[in-house]
Design a protein around this nucleic acid. Structure first.
Lengths: 343, 343
DNA sequence: ATTGTTTTTGTATTCGTATTCATCTTGATA
DNA sequence: TATCAAGATGAATACGAATACAAAAACAAT
């Protein structure tokens, strides 16, 4: 008597319907409430009753409806994730790891990809409609207004690899300023004296902070002149930068790139189009230490972020929001330099 | 009158609560039903009334609750996506494009990453609980049982870059067999006579079909012997294959790799570790034509899939399931060879 | 045996919105 | 002006599961 009424002839009605807790209750000879309890692990129910209910549920292929459950419990068990720039494998890797982690908790990912920051308002709005447990953003900084909207709903927001001074928004980030400093120290110690920095065109705090640490430290060592080249986080941008470098009067000795994709573009173009020797004619440092940085075609000296720890931190903020009494909203993680053959 | 009975003392309650359609109705002086109608584009409502309601909604920062909406309308506006292998940028790219497309329709992505096929049952189960509009799977073939579960619920499932003979599952795929044939023709025409194929270790139909087309065509040309090397879809696997090649007695003249990542691993290791010349000592063909294939360090001859068309086809199946009267459940797209410097 | 306590189950309500049906308003037409 | 149709709105209900509360059952202690 279920919905075994499939296609008879002519009409191909899929007979879409799933068993509900009431169906299971009827079959098991209990009330709907008892069915609900059977599926709530920490609910008080006689083991024998639970087993009876679960048997009936199996027979009917019943599974609690997540939507109905979300409505009454005010939580959808979903975590919103907004990302941009899949040109580099860095963020896809982060996404896959977040997914793997969340699956352990039975949580889902509501995913959004957006290369522009214009529609953040809209995206956040959509996500909030779904009663997510939290939101992870790697693509942009959040406006105060949006941050307040989320805070007002009690939905934790984590900026991943971004941060803001806004008090309502938690951030998990690697210490890009320090990494910039370390890069300057490292290159100076290697004997380089003329530098350049390849930034991303956005107002990404990652790129800006790496730049700031780098330039500050150089300045402390008396090097006041370090040209900054605007790009985006792409291979093509890196290739373009080489053209700019060569068009200008004098080539820097060492170039610090905001990420590995840029570095790869620089290296390839310098080597294969202009026959420059890396690192003799031009040293290059990248960032993120993506797999490609270790390929023998590149062997890029790069900074590695402790992504595993950062993800843990981000998820903890979302999964255990009570612990929000941490001193600061910003959790900084140190990067480590991986020296290879481009310096 | 809500359930504002939380912890009282010393607590900084965020006052978690969002405006509901009833709140809006009260402020606008209409019924809840009218508020609902104001937010349903094709609903019959006096324009002036709608404007009045929308104004009240703005004042209260009200947005229809997607969960409640999903419950009553039996559709969550979400599309489930299951992927694996983010080592290559191929699938991240697909994901970002799917996301961009779906956003135009106001649809969301419920995302799962899984490198194993063991938990497909569990993943599909979870997705189905959310009343998704459809499911896109790039990571595995679906068992008949799971396919039937989905079909019974009227939820369209699309295998992307996979297929099965199961009647209930739609599939969107590039014509890997033909591509394999084309590759054989191309390499033969270039004068190569000794070949090898680097497969993925999985039972991925993509790899198997490329292999089948390749070997079949070679056989038609009288070449019966073509060793097949097992790997996975990774750079490291490609690097490993070179070791195997050199351990065996004679090197093939041309190697067809199941994807570009493998090809890159082969090329790098052959060139830099063993000083082999590509393509003189070893020609290499990849697959997917990922951005890296065009980098000047590689310049890999590769097959390009019409991903844009394939995504369109997959989304059409999910967004317009009525059109399911297509002749076949399998939609095949042709790949095109992009010739570069590794052949 | 009686009372009290604890555990288990059932009843009724709730979450927030869409929708059916009935009611009311408006304007048109005869 | 009376009648009707069409359009707009409100009242009530449904979606499916969780939970507060009540009732019942089981058990212990006197």
């Amino acid at each position: 008597m279920k919905k075994n009424t499939r296609e008879i002839p002519a009409a191909k009605e899929p007979a879409v319907s799933r068993a509900t807790s009431i169906d299971v209750a009827r079959l098991a000879g209990v009330s709907q409430a008892t069915v609900s309890r059977a599926f709530s692990p920490d609910s008080k129910i006689l083991p024998s009753t639970r087993e009876k209910v679960l048997a009936a549920a199996r027979a009917l292929k019943y599974t609690p409806d997540a939507i109905a459950r979300s409505l009454i419990s005010n939580s959808s068990n979903m975590v919103g994730v907004i990302m941009q720039n899949f040109n580099s494998p860095f963020y896809p890797k982060i996404l896959s790891e977040i997914s793997t982690h969340l699956q352990k908790f039975g949580k889902q990912i509501l995913f959004f990809y957006s290369n522009t920051e214009d529609n953040m308002q809209q995206l956040i709005g959509q996500i909030l409609q779904y009663r997510v447990d939290g939101i992870i953003i790697t693509s942009a900084v959040l406006s105060s207004e949006l941050a307040e909207n989320c805070a007002a709903l009690g939905i934790p927001v984590v900026l991943f690899n971004r941060y803001t001074t806004n008090l309502n928004v938690q951030a998990v980030c690697c210490d890009n300023i320090q990494a910039g400093r370390d890069c300057a120290d490292y290159l100076l110690q290697k004997g380089y004296r003329r530098f350049g920095y390849v930034a991303s065109s956005e107002n990404a705090s990652t790129s800006l902070d790496r730049q700031k640490g780098f330039l500050d430290r150089l300045r402390e060592h008396g090097i006041l002149d370090c040209p900054v080249y605007q790009s985006d986080f792409s291979y093509e941008a890196g290739a373009q930068i080489v053209e700019e470098l060569l068009a200008s009067s004098k080539l820097p000795e060492a170039l610090f790139c905001a990420n590995d994709m840029i570095a790869a573009g620089v290296i390839d173009t310098a080597r294969h189009k202009y026959s420059l020797r890396i690192p003799e004619d031009l040293a290059v440092v990248g960032f993120d230490n993506i797999p490609m940085a270790s390929y023998s075609s590149y062997q890029i000296t790069s900074f590695s972020q402790p992504t595993e720890d950062m993800i843990q931190a981000a998820l903890q903020i979302i999964l255990e929001p009570r612990k929000r009494n941490s001193v600061s909203n910003l959790r900084l993680f140190p990067c480590t330099l991986v020296e290879r053959r481009t310096t």
